[in-house]
Every structure is written in C-alpha cells, then in structure tokens.
C-alpha cells in the first residue's frame, strides 16, 4: 500500500493540469470541461470530464421579475415601444374608432405613449399598488411605479396592479407569453378603471428577454362603460434577483 502513494500523487497532479488546461479554454466558447474527480486510484482513470452547455439566458416557464418598459415613440409611421389606446363603444381594437387624445405626442392622437415608471415597468409575482392619495389636487394621477403618469384628456393617468384579481403572473412557453394581469388598474380623473385581463398575450426572445405584451380590457360600469382599453407593453424582461 505504501508503494502506491507516489503513483496516486502523480495521477492527482495530472488531473489538476488537465483541469487547468480545460478551464483556460472556457471563455472561447460556451462549452466547459469540468473535472468530476481530481484524485484517482490509478493513472489510467485519473480523470473524468463531462462537457456541459453554458447557462445561457433562457426565459421559459413562470417569469418572475420586471417587464421593463421601452418608452413609446412615434417617430416611425407606426408607434413603437409601449402605448395605450381607447376604443369607443361598438368599435374594435384593430379598427377603432378610438378616443383621440389631444395630449398625445403622436401625430395620430389615437395613441397615448407610455414611459417607464419608477419601477422601470411591470413586475410579475408582485403587486404594484397605487400611493395614497392616488391623485393630486387637480385630479392628476400620482400612480407612477409601472409607467410614468401620462396625460389623457387633460389629466394625467397612471396604472397599478392593485385591483381585484391575482398578483400578476406571466408564463413563457417557447417564446410565447401568456399572462394574468387581471389586477391592472388605471387611475384617471379622480376615479379608477379596471383595465386588467386574464388573457394577456405576447412574445419573448428566450435569450435576450425582449418582449411584447398586449391585451384589451372592456370597461364595465362607470363613466366609460362600454369603452375598451388597448394596452401594448414592450421592452426587456429582467428576472427577479
């Protein structure tokens, strides 16, 4: 037994060298070689290496984190980024007629652009409640976590996820997003409007996290009964933590 000790030391040294060499190549590609056993009983089986794929971002399953908003932009013919439209009763999300918003920054005033709020965007797995009070003395909404308050019909509106409904949840399946945003609520003109949907849909790039989320929400009851909100959020998803 004593005679085998030098052989074991040699085997261990060889395994360590192999490990070092393997690690030095790791930043050339996404494949690593990991020594699973540094010490072997014999020189012949001193090491075992297993090739593994690097943990590239892959957004799949329940996504918990922040869906950061890209600010809406009207430079191009069609708006990009995040925006909102309101369909008049009897209209459709595709063809309108929409409620024109004179305060829109777009030439086509049917679009109201959204910009990221203090949280950067919409969080899934956590509610984003409105502050108290939710409005200033001029009925401008103070709700600003998801999106910066935007002017609509002379008053700033804000959005929160504090309405009736579960905490926002969004799931990715092969690049397709589905979500329950039932608690999504708009604050405008001193009142609240349920603007959630349990059927938000969209897409996500599984590697970059670039996403789009859209949904429509028919207002039932209140001063805008029969109107439909059309929401389009766009940006990049960042997982929590």
């Amino acid at each position: 037994m004593k005679a085998s000790t030098p052989i074991r030391l040699l085997a261990a040294a060889a395994a360590s060298l192999t490990l070092f060499a393997a690690c030095s190549d790791s930043d050339k590609d996404t494949t690593k070689t990991v020594a699973t056993e540094a010490v072997a009983d014999t020189a012949g089986d001193a090491e075992t290496t297993v090739p593994v794929t690097d943990a590239a971002p892959s957004f799949e399953g329940d996504l918990v984190g922040t869906f950061a908003l890209d600010a809406g932009d009207c430079t191009a013919a069609a708006p990009t980024g995040s925006y909102f439209q309101m369909v008049q009763p009897g209209g459709t999300a595709e063809a309108g007629p929409f409620v024109p918003n004179a305060d829109s920054a777009c030439k086509d005033t049917n679009f109201t652009l959204l910009a990221p709020g203090t949280d950067g965007g919409l969080t899934s797995g956590t509610a984003q409640a409105s502050p108290t009070p939710a409005f200033d003395a001029n009925n401008n909404a103070l709700v600003a976590a998801i999106a910066a308050p935007a002017k609509f019909f002379g008053s700033a509106f804000g959005v929160a996820t504090d309405g009736s409904g579960p905490i926002p949840s969004i799931t990715a399946t092969g690049g397709t997003l589905t979500g329950d945003l039932s608690s999504f609520t708009a604050y405008w003109g001193g009142g609240t409007f349920s603007q959630g949907s349990a059927a938000a849909t969209g897409t996500i790039d599984p590697t970059t996290g670039d996403y789009t989320l859209t949904w429509t929400s028919l207002i039932s009851g209140g001063s805008f009964n029969g109107f439909t909100g059309v929401w389009h959020l766009q940006g990049t998803f960042t997982p929590k933590g």
């Binding site: 009925n139 008053s155 003109g189 009142g191 209140g222």
Partner: peptide
C-alpha cells in the same frame, strides 16, 4: 376652461358613472 378642465373631469366623471350605474 383649460385650467378648470381637470376639475370638471373630476366632477363629471363620477356623475356620468352614477347615471350609468
């Protein structure tokens, strides 16, 4: 009119809601 519009909105909004509901 423009200065008071947000106040007018805040007043008309719940009144229309009351009528509707």
């Amino acid at each position: 009119f423009s200065a008071e519009w947000p106040t007018i909105v805040g007043e008309f909004n719940p009144m229309i809601a009351t009528m509707n509901d």
